[in-house]
Design a protein around this nucleic acid. Structure first.
Lengths: 186, 186
DNA sequence: TATTGTTATACTCTATAACTATA
DNA sequence: TATAGTTATAGAGTATAACAATA
């Protein structure tokens, strides 16, 4: 059984946090917790109409949306690159979509190593039906955010992404050991 | 092959968007795209040390962290509720963790329906080792966000989560059909 | 009757390795 | 040699349904 949605409030980190993790920032932890949670909840809501209507996984629909966005057939490896998965995983995904007749595989006219992935009419129909529902959910979810708050919010989101990307290119940050007081204090 | 990280910038939505999806808000779509992306990237970074050091899935580590945070053993259903998964999925997760000797199952002293999940010493050690690394990553990723921007950012994140929660309790928002111009315009 | 947990079954996503065909 | 794709194999996470034991 899944429980109902409790009242929503900002996720806070207890006051002992910076004592327990020397060098760590409490406000950073709060931002991380709330950002990850908000992102996950958003994904779930975006996913909901798709799964319900089409019985399609997020990855499956994403594949269709990439093909739709490209405006024409794409070779498999180029979809795989965009989705950050291996070619073998791509094959498996495409098998699933092809079984449901949402995509077709056609040989590339000049390079016989390649397979061009086409949206079928059914696949196109699913994208055309689901995208408006998804964008309606997005618009409605953010209806209470004032227009003047949106650009600053976007700017901070981008700053976070830049900070994350910088992490990948440097050695993992140093840290001191946890100061493990009583567990119940967390 | 997975590609490297391109330069990071705000994800923007093309200008034809509100024409293509009547009633939808372009700034909302940009916030959704950047928020979901930032959340996913954050999760990936938080995940990285855990997977590397302990070969543990995100869900597996999350289970250990919940037990650690509780300060003592918990019955399975209470962990499942926090993770929003079914009791059958919980059983499978716990099987995996028990196979690696990171948790133990003990009978509840008074309610014989319940099984109390205990962190083993190995499980506790993984949490104690990984949590500082995770919090160092979080602190470092956000180092460039000025302190005075943090509370407003948190406030907007919470407003988004409230908007999302409100969606769940109401019928799906109405929307008009996609105005399907040329595909390449997207 | 409701709660807690397990088993059985099935599907998706993912990864790695080995392989074919083509460039 | 490098690129594109498939097959084979394996493992994790998820869901549903049916079930047992207990409260």
């Amino acid at each position: 059984m899944l429980m109902g949605m409790a009242d929503i409030s900002t996720i806070r980190v207890p006051s002992g946090y910076e004592r327990e993790f020397p060098g760590a920032s409490r406000s950073a932890a709060e931002i991380a917790a709330n950002l990850v949670r908000a992102g996950t909840e958003f994904l779930t809501e975006i996913d909901r109409p798709t799964r319900k209507a089409a019985g399609l996984s997020a990855r499956g629909f994403q594949t269709l949306a990439i093909l739709d966005g490209a405006g024409g057939p794409l070779p498999g490896y180029s979809i795989a690159e965009q989705m950050l998965i291996s070619s073998a995983s791509m094959t498996s995904l495409l098998d699933t979509l092809q079984r449901r007749a949402l995509i077709e595989r056609h040989p590339h006219p000049t390079d016989r190593r390649k397979v061009l992935i086409h949206l079928t009419d059914d696949g196109q129909r699913i994208v055309d039906q689901q995208l408006p529902a998804i964008h309606a959910v997005i618009t409605q979810a953010l209806i209470a955010i004032p227009e003047e708050d949106r650009e600053p919010f976007l700017a901070t989101l981008t700053a976070v992404r830049i900070g994350l990307a910088a992490l990948t290119e440097t050695p993992p940050p140093q840290h001191k050991a946890r100061r493990t007081a009583r567990r119940a204090d967390l």
